[in-house]
């Protein structure tokens, strides 16, 4: 993450960070990097939560944290389904790389049931079916000054109309990767 973004997060006085990665057996690299970057700038006033439906992703996230002297709270859950009302409006940073690959609907269904690696990419029609379900939740839990970073591919951009109703949208990054064109958006709540 670029240092500009770490400054933005600090200006917004974040005290709570969330990495929402539905199922991307990752490694927790993003959330651990964010923690290290912010710590380098002496910003330590945050709690970091990592959420996934896949236990393997969470295991690896914890191991990555230990190796990097970071501290991430992991929860195996779907979206924010088990968060109490108290969490509403309390999340200052969301980072979400949704399963964004365009797939047939049945592939998406099977992937979500299996809760395995397939669920990290299968996004159904336009690749946005999982994201569509997450948008109202993200809006609900994001704090008034919170920031929501979202990784998409060009095929997903139909979602912009929906996002634009709730959020102000900034294009941070557009990049060519083998097989896909990725876009990173920064979303903030529309001021009423």
């Amino acid at each position: 993450m670029h240092s500009n973004q770490t400054q933005i997060i600090q200006q917004r006085q974040s005290s709570l960070c969330i990495l929402q990665r539905l199922v991307r057996v990752g490694s927790g690299v993003v959330i651990n990097s964010l923690q290290k970057l912010l710590a380098q700038q002496s910003f330590n006033d945050a709690i970091y939560f990592g959420i996934d439906i896949n236990i393997k992703a969470l295991d690896v996230t914890l191991r990555t944290a230990i190796q990097n002297n970071c501290d991430v709270q992991v929860i195996q859950q779907s979206f924010c389904h088990n968060f109490t009302n108290l969490m509403k409006g309390s999340v200052d940073v969301f980072i979400f790389n949704p399963p964004y690959v365009v797939t047939p609907e049945d592939e998406l269904m099977k992937a979500q049931q299996k809760r395995d690696i397939e669920a990290s990419w299968a996004g159904g029609k336009d690749g946005i079916q999982v994201l569509m379900a997450f948008i109202p939740k993200a809006y609900e839990f994001l704090s008034e000054k919170g920031v929501f970073y979202l990784l998409l591919i060009e095929e997903n951009l139909k979602i912009l109309k929906r996002l634009g109703k709730l959020f102000d949208i900034v294009y941070l990054v557009k990049r060519e990767c083998p097989g896909e064109r990725q876009v990173i958006l920064r979303l903030t709540k529309k001021q009423k």
Binding site: D45, I47, L86
Partner: peptide, 23 residues
């Protein structure tokens, strides 16, 4: 208990903010 290497350091400001939010 996490050892000091892996736990976040004692940080009164963070704890005070948590007190505002916690149930």
């Amino acid at each position: 208990d996490l050892d000091t290497e892996n736990a976040q350091q004692y940080n009164p400001a963070l704890l005070q903010r948590l007190c505002e939010k916690i149930e």
